[in-house]
Design a protein around this nucleic acid. Sequence first.
RNA 1: GGGCGGAUGGCGGAAUUGGUAGACGCGCAUGCCUUAGGAGCAUGUGGGGAAACUCAUGGAGGUUCAAGUCCUCUUCCGCCCACCA
Length: 829
Amino acid sequence: MTQTVYTTEEIKKIEEKWQKIWEERKIFRVSENSSKAKYYVLEMFPYPSGKIHMGHVRNYTIADVIARFKMMQGFNVLHPMGYDAFGQPAENAAIKRNVDPAEWTYSCIDQMRAELKRMGFSYDWGRELATCDREYYRWNQWIFLKMYERGLAYKKASSVNWCAGCETTLANEEVINGLCWRCKSEVGQKDLDQWYLKITGYKEKLLEDLQALDHWPQRVIAMQENWIGRSRGVNMYFQLKDFDEKITVFTTRPDTIFGATYVVLAPEHPLVDKLISGVPREPEIRRFIEKVKAENKNLRTAGDKKKEGMFTGRHAINPANKEEVPVWIADYVLMEYGAGAIMAVPTHDQRDFLFAKEHHLPMRMVIQDPAQPDITVHELTCAYEGEGLLINSVQFDGVPSREAIEKIGRWMETQGMGQMTVHWRLRDWLISRQRYWGTPIPFIYCDRCGLVPVPQEQLPVELPKNVKITGEGGSPLNHCPEFVHVPCPRCQGPARRETDTMATFFDSSWYYLRYCSAKDETQVFDKKQASYWMPVDQYIGGIEHAILHLLYSRFFTKFLKDIGLIDCDEPFIRLLTQGMVLKDGEVMSKSRGNTVDPDSIIEKYGADALRLFILFAAPPEEQLEWNDHAIDGAWKFLNRVWLCAGNRFRPNDQQVSAERMDQEDKELERERNAAIKKITQDLSEGFKFNTAISGLMILLNKIDKYKADERDPVKQTILNRAIQTMILLLSPFTPHLCEELWQKMGAREESISRAAWPTHDEEALKQDLIQIVAQVNGKLRGKFDVPADITEEALRQIILSDPKVKEFTQGKPPRKFIYVPGKLANIVV
RNA sequence: GGGCGGAUGGCGGAAUUGGUAGACGCGCAUGCCUUAGGAGCAUGUGGGGAAACUCAUGGAGGUUCAAGUCCUCUUCCGCCCACCA
């Protein structure tokens, strides 16, 4: 019988067959009751749009190879999947197509699940969850109430980012260059009563613990550090002239205090009103302030915008030199950062320099630029922001600026002029959304009792059905009287429910914990099971979640540890951020119209070929350029494997001892062992799937070249062994094909994923003859096959007597002979 | 402005971490197989040169017996952050 080409029909039959077996026999179901070491592999769960795209395929294929590799290595592998199912697209669909968001979402999930199954991923489907499930979001509410108990969830009236397009508030993190991250419309400001989570309560830990995340990409750590934004500086007090109050300014550059020639307040600063009351230009100033306040905060702070400001007519005293300096108001000072007021040092801060030039404000140099020590204030064309010795700074003259930062800070503290302090960029997390398709925030407003949390036993606060979603007029739940009007849980009097829902980032901040006991209806998650599985050993997803999702998840983990529910500090030990999938040099996206539908590729080539291509084309962290030809290549390779294993494997149970092997046999055995070693290394030390696959291609090439007479049992055994090893090593990458071949070759396991990962024999890697490269003055001049155990002296004789080497040394005696054992010899003349 | 990555054949990418640059694959070329296939097999494929050789890892220097890899300067590209005081 001859096995022929691996056809589309055959591929389809085989892939469906094994997907069915995996499902029916629950091959990938796991429990924590195992003596094996655990390994938790997790990919960032998808928003269920219905269709999977190449980005998903890449993300999940990477995770699947890791999961299957670890299974075969004997780990108890948890590999779950679910859906980040709340959010605006469902509402938009509801508006556009007049469908129920829940119905729409669940039908998308069904489609998506089917597509994921067609890829052959090794998920434990028994743990599947969707964040819009009643049994999931109920625990969102439970966690929210726990946070409230601890003072970590609170309501605050504040000016918030408001997206008119989505008719909702946005977190700072969701505003990108002044535009809504989702609909790209311009974001404005609005005063609203909103729910916040006090993530700032964990800022120190969130920053410090980054240091321990050795297996996270450096840049993700840097991005989080940046976002948390710790900066050390000094709060300085500028006494106002004619008033009792002092203005506090924050600066990271106390070394420049003697050059502070004016003070600037943010327009929102609380002292502004008092200061400008009664000054001659009061109406004009008020108009200016109103104008700035109405402006979009993010546009206002755009880098290239011209700075505008006005003199208040008031003065303050520079605490260091007791000089009177004018007090200004300007749009480039933000109330949210520092003290909402700055001291301006035009000579050493470029923004202050431009502002001072524009408004003819005084300047004084206090740090000497070593490159042009004699330059005067009038000759300056830009601020000097570098280091140097202090000048015009009384007792600090001559002190290097770096030292002066510390010295002046301490001096001001002892003089009561200021206080050394630390400022953070991280803000509390605005969680309220005026949206329907999200988790209802479990609170009730009672005229008599005030804000009342919904009692635990009344959870979940269910999202009502049949709510009219128009996309207009704020929160849809507001227009749903049976939801809004409820009795107060405390006094039973008439009360109103909170109608805001939670931002979906809340849902995704703890789903990895829920997977540990996904079906538990009695608690948020089972403590014992979570402590068995957590933390996640390997997390995989896109770089776009480097800040928000990962920071929030870290925050939740720390909180849940503090209330005694888990025992780990950090949720994700290792993080792999996979690169984007490009086509024609651009990111694949619907709007660009350059997508390749995974389904159509599976249809033609099968899931295995798609998986193989996507892993082979680039290292996982790098961008991947889609290539129609290369997928053909992946299929070609699988076809060769199919033909090789199908036609050349002949069952026999001959034992072969090393003495009976000839040169070719030993050679193939060596290649087999080398492949095991290389591929195991590539998968263990970082995830070098591309080179692991090239190693498999090399092994197949060697097997193809190996001539074995079918009637020679020794050769057949060696051939069989090589083929079996190849199939085992290939199986995490292309599981369907390998399951089929493994079974044909007489598998004892139910699934190849239960077979043991092969190990190599270091002895078999040894060679009798090795190649030594000879160099003369560092240039390659010859190659010599010599016995592996050759001495340096013997090698030296061989090389130096070689005619070609002689030609290049021109008979001169070597000045130096450098020998790198087993590799290379360099003759220096 | 700050931070983090990159730059190697026609293309995707390798290179044991200082030791044969271009593994493996795609593409291309020439044959073979007459079982006409998304085949398969063989050979070749960085540039120059008939060859011996020689030049080549964005550019310029340097360290070294030896540099894609280390150091200094520089150009270009990508991503993230940013009136953050």
